[in-house]
């Protein structure tokens, strides 16, 4: 593992983000707009369904929104960092350099963490200012869920890269679309009990379901549901391994079929 290689990938992305207004907007702008949206929705829900003591809608819905944003940003920053190399036709230079696949993934993960932390430490005070929501009230319960959300974002980022390598730059829409596909089945804003029985069984394989369900239990009951932490972590590990193998397989296929050079031609 060469630290300079990872630093190179990190530095390259920092320079781009720092300089680009649209990228800064995608980092801070979307999350601000969505915070307003979900804040107003929650205010309305509170008026029609007054809190009965068990349900603090503001905490439940807005914390779910913030953590979903963490997941979304984690996946998107990972995928877009790779797509940036494709869009700027630099991808051949990157793959012809001595950077290992693991270093590439670590570099993207590092830039993902930096973006997620920036967005998180921006949106939590903003949520407090606008809706007096103090996410830190959740205490240390959220740490295992936060970590799992972050890691699963990377896993989907790795899968996104694999798909772009296989299907070319036209598959870039997947970088933005994949998390959206999981949103209805991850029990982000509602408990899994609202799913039909079959869907409850099918969604068991989704780490996000266990993360958000566990977090909701932590908020409402004040305990850390260990079985949710366990399943979220175990499924994350399996998905991570499969994601890495998928990317490795796609890259191998790309080298055999000549897809890598096609990435700059499409």
């Amino acid at each position: 593992m060469n630290f300079l290689h990872i630093l190179g990938i990190f530095y390259r992305n920092v320079v781009i983000i720092r300089r680009s207004v649209p990228k800064l907007f995608s980092l801070f702008g979307f999350i601000t707009v969505e915070l307003f949206l979900w804040g107003f929705v929650t205010l309305w829900v509170e008026t029609v369904a007054p809190a009965d003591g068990n349900y603090d809608f503001m905490l439940l819905i807005l914390s779910a929104f913030i953590f979903w944003s963490v997941f979304d940003l984690s996946q998107r920053s990972f995928g877009v960092s790779f797509l940036e190399e494709v869009w700027s036709r630099n991808i051949i230079n990157l793959f012809a350099s001595p950077v290992k696949l693991s270093e590439l993934i670590l570099g993207f993960a590092l830039i993902g963490v930096a973006q997620v932390l920036l967005a998180f430490f921006y949106v939590t005070p903003l949520a407090f200012l606008l809706y007096t929501l103090n996410i830190w009230d959740l205490g240390l319960y959220i740490i295992p869920f936060f970590m799992n959300i972050l890691v699963f974002g990377w896993v989907l980022g790795v899968v996104t890269i694999g798909l772009v390598v296989r299907f070319g730059p036209s598959a870039d829409i997947l970088a933005f679309f994949i998390p959206f596909l999981l949103l209805p089945f991850s029990a982000v804003y509602y408990p899994i009990s609202v799913f039909p029985p079959l869907l409850q069984k099918l969604t068991f394989v989704l780490p996000t379901r266990h993360m958000f369900e566990g977090m909701r239990i932590a908020i409402t009951e004040g305990i850390v549901p260990l079985h949710n932490v366990f399943w979220a972590s175990a499924l994350n590990l399996i998905c991570g391994l499969l994601g890495f193998l998928f990317l490795y397989w796609m890259l191998r296929l790309a080298r055999t079929k000549g897809y890598l050079s096609r990435l700059v031609q499409d």
């Binding site: 781009i16 300089r19 190399e85 700027s88 051949i92």
Partner: peptide, 12 residues
């Protein structure tokens, strides 16, 4: 290496 198919990142 250098080649016509490998441009350097335009935004740097």
């Amino acid at each position: 290496f250098t080649g016509p198919y490998s441009l350097l990142p335009y935004n740097l």
